[in-house]
Design a protein around this nucleic acid. Structure first.
Lengths: 245, 245
DNA sequence: CGGTTACTTGAGATACGTCAAAACGAGTGG
DNA sequence: CCACTCGTTTTGACGTATCTCAAGTAACCG
């Protein structure tokens, strides 16, 4: 079942553009503060900028993990699917996030582009070798993996112990935090939602109808405003009372 | 709310026994195949064997993370709780597992002993410094963290997209795999369940009644046999059909 | 502008939760 | 060794949040 889409990946890899890696530069800098100018240049030498159209597949579960990605722009969707088609989205990597940091030889989940995406792509073996030579960087990557683990555990908490309302409110708040890169604030904020309702539903472990209804109700209660490509958070207070974590 | 149990931790730390670290030795060896005899000895020098009684607290969310633990024996329970008391268990570390590998300065979840537990305890700063000097080991720890991330994502999949029956079947199967350390087999197997029904429920995001009912039904259908301290898996086939992942 | 896909909305079904009581098991003390 | 207690697990009856199915509407794209 994974086989034929593996071909699809080959196809899109083949259409990659080897542009200059200025985008990679910007992105990598943040992670590699530990690295010297010289090292950073060397790392960039290993990077290949690759673009994917919306809905294009980066890879599928079971593929062998040829590459490590660092997202430069756009939104990616990571997910696993059960044999009967039920799908669970496990993350939405965005600019700055890494994919495949585990350095495992085969992929344990699928990834495809929600929006047009550009990434820095490293050969896994080259990246791994580079890491062997730069312990500083390895430690940064470890911290990065720890961050991912934290996110995953947040999701476990949300899926296991929150109501549908709380799940949706939590989701919006997480996206807001990520958008503004950390600094908190309760001011109204526009949150783009590049992913579909179905994606959100599959991330939160509910149905698309539940997501839709909940968002509409939030809007009716003036907690948010729904606009074409996202929402504006006005006051989620009454809904995320239990969603502080 | 976390404060007074932090004291409890201090108390139990105070009652620690500084036994010889032969247990640590055995445990650490598996992880540190990369390490030479000399290095391993040095690492052991940093370890302190600590024991906890059943139900004793290792640490609480918000505490500062003074230590990194490697479980030598017993079962630990990791969890987070919402303000209103809802609890989500995020893992049951057992012999060989690490706790606190993220090296974060403060704990993002609580941990306490399900059974009597003994661990190797490292000072976080010492451990971190040691890691800086032994990139090999750092890489092994990174792999370890990746394993944790994989487990967490399995849990996300289970909580988000499996029915109660499938959750319970999945849980039993995961515990069986862990018990027999990897090698698969569909032979009947005794699976100890040191944790309470409530713990299982909070791990799977269901209620204690649902866990109890489901296990009883499995037993009635001869999929398992329930015994005082666990279950014997006879044939989970019909229940984990969708739980292969 | 027509066709297609995504989103919304409603009405009815159900898996699981809630509440309450009974059964069981591990310890404790007589 | 038995009786008693306390905490855990089991079982039942009932309620409801969320799912399912189905139809309608809006947004998008060629």
């Amino acid at each position: 079942m994974n086989r034929h889409v593996a071909l699809q990946e080959l196809t899109c890899t083949r259409t990659q553009t080897r542009v200059d890696c200025s985008g990679c530069d910007v992105r990598l800098r943040s992670v590699c503060a530990a690295l010297g100018e010289q090292d950073l240049r060397e790392l960039q030498g290993l990077a290949r900028s690759v673009s994917f159209a919306a809905k294009e597949t980066l890879f599928l579960e079971g593929d062998d993990a040829a590459g490590v990605f660092n997202v430069v722009s756009g939104t990616v969707r990571l997910y696993r699917v059960l044999e009967d088609g039920r799908r669970q989205v496990i993350g939405f990597p965005m600019a700055g996030d890494f994919i495949g940091l585990d350095l495992a030889p085969t992929r344990s989940f699928c990834a495809d582009a929600v929006t047009p995406v550009t990434v820095c792509r490293f050969s896994r073996s080259e990246f791994s070798e580079f890491l062997d030579r730069k312990p500083q960087l390895l430690k940064a990557m470890h911290a990065r993996a720890a961050l991912e683990l934290g996110r995953s555990r947040d999701q476990v908490l949300a899926l296991g112990r929150r109501s549908a309302d709380e799940k949706v409110a939590w989701f919006l708040r997480v996206l807001r935090e990520r958008g503004r890169c950390g600094e908190p604030s309760d001011a109204p904020a526009d949150v783009p939602l590049p992913m579909s309702r179905q994606d959100i539903a599959d991330f939160l472990g509910v149905t698309i109808e539940t997501v839709s209804r909940t968002l509409q109700r939030f809007a009716r209660d003036a907690a948010i405003e729904i606009n074409p490509h996202g929402v504006r958070i006005v006051d989620l207070g009454k809904w995320d009372g239990f969603a502080r974590d």
